[in-house]
């Protein structure tokens, strides 16, 4: 099996796997990261969202061989329990989940939005997150959390 070296959350990591292995399984199984989740495997739900060079990408359909020289960021790379990212903090303050399975994708997609549009309207947030499915009906809380993070960041 070929070897691939990736930069994940700022650190260089080497894995041995087939060229077409989806990044999702490398992150979850080789690197033991829990953030990105398997939801559909075919880019329909957003649960597996990560950032590649700062842009939101679906790790379930991104082959590991496409990542040479690229920076991958996962939910773990945003913040920690002790030092949460403003979005993570805002999701906690708004209690913006029920089961929390979609949360990774929501936060990662919202981060990609705020990076290019720090003060989005609620319509812009909804459009940006429209490809991320939530079955628990946490949508309105998620929109409020993104607005809160946006406000806190500007403060």
């Amino acid at each position: 099996m070929p070897e691939y070296t990736l930069r994940v959350n700022g650190a260089s990591r080497t894995v041995r796997t087939d060229a077409d292995t989806p990044l999702l399984y490398v992150l979850r199984n080789d690197l033991e990261l829990n953030g990105p989740k398997f939801g559909c495997g075919i880019a329909q739900c957003g649960a597996c969202t990560v950032h590649i060079d700062g842009r939101a990408a679906r790790s379930c359909v991104t082959p590991v061989s496409a990542l040479a020289g690229k920076n991958v960021t996962t939910l773990e790379g945003l913040g920690t329990l002790d030092k949460p990212h403003p979005l993570q903090q805002a999701f906690l303050e708004e209690q913006a989940a029920q089961c929390g399975y979609c949360t990774n994708g929501m936060i990662m997609s919202a981060k990609a939005l705020l990076d290019v549009n720090p003060k989005p309207s609620s319509a812009q947030i909804k459009t940006a997150l429209a490809g991320n499915l939530c079955r628990c009906g946490s949508h309105n809380r998620i929109v409020r959390a993104v607005q809160r993070a946006s406000a806190n960041k500007g403060a």
């Binding site: 990261l33 829990n34 953030g35 989740k37 398997f38 996962t74 939910l75 773990e76 913040g79 920690t80 329990l81 949460p84 993570q88 999701f91 906690l92 209690q95 989940a97 929390g100 399975y101 949360t103 990774n104 936060i107």
Partner: peptide, 19 residues
């Protein structure tokens, strides 16, 4: 309205699910 005890792990990538 006590905050949910399972959320901190879920928003930071802690082990939260059987997955």
């Amino acid at each position: 309205s006590v905050p949910r005890r399972d959320f901190p792990a879920k928003v930071t990538g802690g082990a939260a699910f059987v997955q």
